[in-house]
Design a binder for these strands. Structure first.
Length: 924
RNA sequence: GGGCAUAUAACUCAGUGGUAGAGUGCUGCCUUCACACGGCAGAAGUCACAGGUUCAAAUCCUGUUAUGCCCACCA
């Protein structure tokens, strides 16, 4: 035949997306029913510099499953795509590229540089959009957005100005996380705490305590402070207060000795009586000579270290807070370049912070003031982007006041207006909002939304949507309209514009049709690492500016781990490229594997075995269709629509059964996807298609379908098999769009896409058919088991007898006699009233049906005894358990009547079966 | 230090208050006219540990242990 035996994804996949896109199947306008429900999702915008990684592959697959499923259900689906300008990442990429050409960004200047970035975006951007087409993302490209688009930028200005006018955005001088590598402030979220192996240095500061308080004692008279300190700490009275002949010293411990150059106090806990006497004294800062005060602050733990803390208000967040509380001097000794400033003694100036650390330690040691050095591992803030150690610095930045915005965002999740899945994640979300800190929103970058603020020569700030409005505001304040206005140089954190994404993409602040139609969205599918960065902030902004939650459900997809359950990382070298996976196994198979692995957990290890079984599944679908195409030619020519009901004039058991199975698969898929139980949808489809449809229904249809005779019966079977196949392809399409479209169009649907076909809707199941079919498959399996146990070659036909007193069972066996003969490879099948004890006959029992297979001379009695024994043991185990339960009065009295009845029925059935088996064993 | 998860077959994971399931792997048979990326038949689990609730617990509660993730200002 012309259809290959193996499915070749590469032959098929590239073909369909261009057609779908050109036909605009993915715009909500394709759905013409105005009453159809709306289903909106906005894509988490990938970085414009980005390329598709495994996380995207999973995230996009799940969104696409939902979008295609809802679309086939008749919804007006809008899945809105777009990209993020990714301030820091993009600026870094272009800066690096320019550097490779020997051009320094600063020489180029801001305007020229920005031109280069736009140029870069035009030429090198768009990678991810191409990759999204490979995955099959059914997004509406006509509505694609970029966070730096004109419309979205307008939204950013509007939000900034409104929040500023409300006092929710402010500018101020605070301690921020400074990235010396990027030369910009970064937010707390962009700072990653990582354990770093370092030291903790114990340093003595002389105390100036009146008469003998002279630390400049000459070398010869010097006391060994280190020894004294060691002695003191071996004694019971651990303390950092060292009284020696040479004078009094206090001992502080620090992980960053270089910051001592900026110390302006030493702190201890107000309740720490050991140091009460120091309250009004002064210490002399070594190497610097500055006199510094003692302060008392609850922040200091009595029991940690010596209980004395050096305070560097300009270089440590805690010390900054203490500095504010106690009105200390803020001396900046480390610069934005992470070098020592002119505020420090001359010999340290211009030294890098780590060189300065060495120098300071060396000098303290020389002065005999370094008392102890311990190894110490502590958490140090690192810049997420550059990887450099963050320097806490005091700097003037823009901040957003978060508390008033966080409150409604918290409430919306608590009262269920927005549901976060999985449940545990909503607790993380709530916890963060409850302890929210103000957000540093300004960045010292060029690429991004410029902060809409201007400064007058006397330092006044004017915030406005543009310069003209700024001048209007000047006039309103009674100032000269021609005042020189200097624009703010900074840009906004990338996440500022992303926070507006669910409504800015739909046209806000204009009241567009799209905004009215598609906001709020139904579901956001995203990854856990951006819950704070993005999800929480969208919630805040959506509630603030739209007055409604931006999405009713947030589904957090799993983190994709490598096959060994390890987090993927470049340093570990275990990063899996999704495009390689698609290439190796096929896109549909990879999508299916990802969906099947999307359980309730927060992680997902991508196993090769899962990918292989998914690939095999695609092949199974291919071959099942191949079978139909090869055998049902004349039906496929027929243009009559394939409606099951009208053709079902004389349904067989198999027909009723497969229809019932289809119904239950349909209803399970629908409810699984409604509740975001993706794996369940995948498992249901896999089992239905493979185990029910292929293993049984197709097998049962073979005598009719492969028959060359044209009869009404044969034609009816062919029609039914095509019907079930088509329904199956529709069910599978959201998960496996390419292969299903390909096969759909090979069936008589030329030019009709499967993308817009009706998703099957479940009707009632036929439980009787399912029960009867179970009986049939049970008999066939038992007979096959006997064949297998005694190694009967497939070519050898055997005889069999069945006996039962149950009328319904008899009817099934009668109707299915031919099929039992065929599937169990029998010579003949006899239905008898009772089976007589026969020598050399193998026996079995199945729910009231006795089976006998005469195997004169072929039976190995030991084997048979063993086979029967295993069966009896298994049944007896269950029977005894039930007996034990039923003899328990409490069970009979308290358990649900239904459960008791069920147990009794099962028990009786088992009793009969075991009795029969025992007779068989005795007769052996 | 706080919080959130997770512990089930060799591996990766589902699962439900009524004595356990899948995929892969494993064993045996089969190159039977859709598919060896296949078919058929099998073996395999004190459902982490210890208590408690219940007629009944792998499933609910408590504690323990182990692992993972997130948050946090211990110098």
């Amino acid at each position: 035949m012309e259809i290959p035996k193996q499915y070749e994804p590469k032959e098929v996949e590239g073909r369909w997306y261009p057609e779908w896109e050109a036909s605009q199947y993915f715009t909500p306008e394709k759905q013409t029913n105005p009453a159809a429900p709306v289903f909106t999702m906005v894509i988490p915008p990938p970085n414009v510099t980005g390329y598709l990684h495994m996380g995207h592959a999973l995230n996009h697959t799940l969104q696409d499953v939902l979008a295609r499923w809802r679309r086939m259900n008749g919804d007006r689906v809008l899945w809105l795509p777009g990209t993020d300008h990714a301030g820091i990442a993009t600026q870094m990429v272009v800066t690096r590229q320019l550097a490779a050409e020997g051009v320094d960004r600063r020489d180029l200047g801001r305007e020229k540089f920005l031109e280069k970035v736009w140029e870069w975006k035009a030429h090198s951007g768009g990678t991810i959009q191409k990759q999204m087409r490979i995955v099959g993302d059914s997004v509406d490209w006509s509505r694609e957005r970029f966070t730096m688009d004109e419309g979205l930028s307008k939204a950013v200005l509007e939000v900034f100005v409104r929040l500023y006018d409300e006092g929710l955005i402010y500018r101020g001088e605070y301690m921020v996380n400074w990235s010396p590598g990027l030369q910009t402030a970064i937010s707390d979220l962009e700072t990653e705490m990582k354990p770093v192996k370092g030291n903790i240095w114990h340093i003595a500061y002389p105390v100036k305590d009146g008469a003998e308080g002279d630390s400049t004692t000459s070398r010869s008279e010097r006391v060994d402070l280190a020894e004294a300190y060691a002695a003191l700490n071996e004694s019971e009275a651990k303390s950092g207060l060292l009284k020696t002949a040479q004078g009094t010293f206090i001992v502080v411990a620090t992980t960053r000795p270089e910051t001592m150059l900026g110390d302006t106090a030493v702190a201890f806990n107000p309740e720490d009586e050991r140091y009460a006497e120091l309250k009004d004294k002064k210490a002399v800062l070594p190497l610097v000579g500055r006199e510094i005060q003692f302060i008392q602050d609850n922040l200091v733990e009595k029991d940690f270290g010596t209980g004395l803390v050096k305070v560097t208000p300009a270089h440590d967040p805690n010390d900054f807070a203490m500095g504010k509380r106690h009105g200390l001097e803020f001396i900046q000794v480390i610069s934005k370049e992470a070098k020592i400033t002119d505020a420090a003694p001359e010999k340290y100036r211009e030294l890098d912070r780590y060189a300065a650390r060495k120098a300071v330690v060396a000098d303290l040691e020389a002065a005999g003031l370094l008392l102890k050095v311990e190894d110490y591992t502590h958490n140090v803030g690192h810049c997420q982007r550059s990887g450099q150690v963050v320097e806490p610095l005091i700097s003037t930045q823009w901040f957003m006041k978060m508390q008033p915005l966080a409150e409604p965002a918290l409430q919306a999740v608590l009262d269920g207006r927005t549901k976060i899945i999985p449940e545990g994640v909503s607790k993380i979300y709530c916890g963060w909002l409850e302890n929210i800190q103000d957000w540093c929103i300004s960045r010292q970058l060029w690429w991004g939304h410029r902060i809409p603020a201007w400064y007058t020569p006397d330092g006044e700030i004017i915030v406005a949507r543009n310069e003209a409005e700024a001048r209007e505001r000047l006039v309103q304040q009674g100032k000269d309209v021609n005042t020189v206005l200097t624009p703010d140089e900074d840009v906004l954190d990338t996440w500022f514009s992303s926070a507006l994404w669910p409504f800015s993409t739909l046209g806000w602040p204009e009241q567009t049709e799209d905004l009215k139609n598609f906001y709020p969205t139904q579901v956001l599918v995203t990854a856990q690492d951006i819950i704070f960065f993005w999800v929480a902030r969208m919630m805040m902004m959506g509630l603030k500016f739209m007055g409604e939650v931006p999405f009713s459900t947030v589904y957090i997809n799993a983190l994709v781990l490598d096959p060994h359950g390890q987090k993927m990382s470049k340093t570990k070298g275990n990063v899996i490229d999704p495009l390689e996976v698609f290439d190796k196994y096929g896109t549909d198979a990879a999508r299916f594997a990802l969906t099947a692995a999307s359980t309730a957990g927060l992680t997902l290890a991508l196993q090769d075995s899962k990918l292989e079984s998914s690939r095999n599944f695609a092949n199974k679908i291919w071959n099942a269709t191949r079978f139909v195409l090869m055998n049902c030619g004349e039906i496929l020519e027929d243009q009559e629509p394939l409606e099951w009901e009208t053709k079902l004039s004389n349904p067989t058991l198999a027909d009723r059964w497969i229809l019932s199975r289809l119904q239950s698969a349909t209803s399970e898929v629908n409810s699984a996807l409604t509740e975001y139980r993706f794996h369940e949808a995948a498992a249901t489809l896999y089992q239905f298609f493979w185990n029910d449809f292929c293993d049984w229904y197709i097998e049962l249809s073979k005598p009719f379908v492969t028959s060359t005779e044209i009869s009404d019966e044969n034609t009816a079977v062919k029609r039914r098999i095509i019907y079930i196949l088509e329904r199956s392809l529709c069910l599978l399409h959201p998960l496996m769009p390419f292969i299903t479209e390909e096969l759909w169009q090979r069936l008589p649907h030329k030019g009709e896409t499967i993308c817009l076909k009706d998703f099957p809707q479940a009707v009632a199941r036929d439980e009787q058919a399912e029960r009867e079919m179970e009986l049939f498959t049970g008999i066939v399996s038992k007979l096959r088991n006997i064949r297998s146990t005694f190694n009967i070659a497939p070519s050898v036909k055997i005889k069999a007898q069945l006996a039962t007193s149950d009328e319904a069972s008899k009817a099934v066996m009668t109707a299915m006699t031919d099929q039992i003969i065929r599937l169990a490879r029998l010579e003949s099948l006899e239905l008898v009233e009772a089976i007589a004890a026969q020598k050399g006959s193998v026996r079995d029992v199945l729910s009231g049906i006795e089976i006998a297979v005469p195997l004169e001379g072929l039976v190995d009695f030991d084997k048979e005894r063993e086979r029967l024994k295993t069966t009896v043991t298994k049944l007896s185990g269950e029977y005894e358990g039930l007996q034990k339960r039923l003899s328990n009065q409490d069970f009979v009295a308290r358990a649900a009547a239904e459960v008791v009845a069920q147990s009794q029925a099962r028990s009786a059935e088992l009793e009969e079966q075991i009795a029969k088996m025992k007779v068989v064993m005795e007769n052996l």
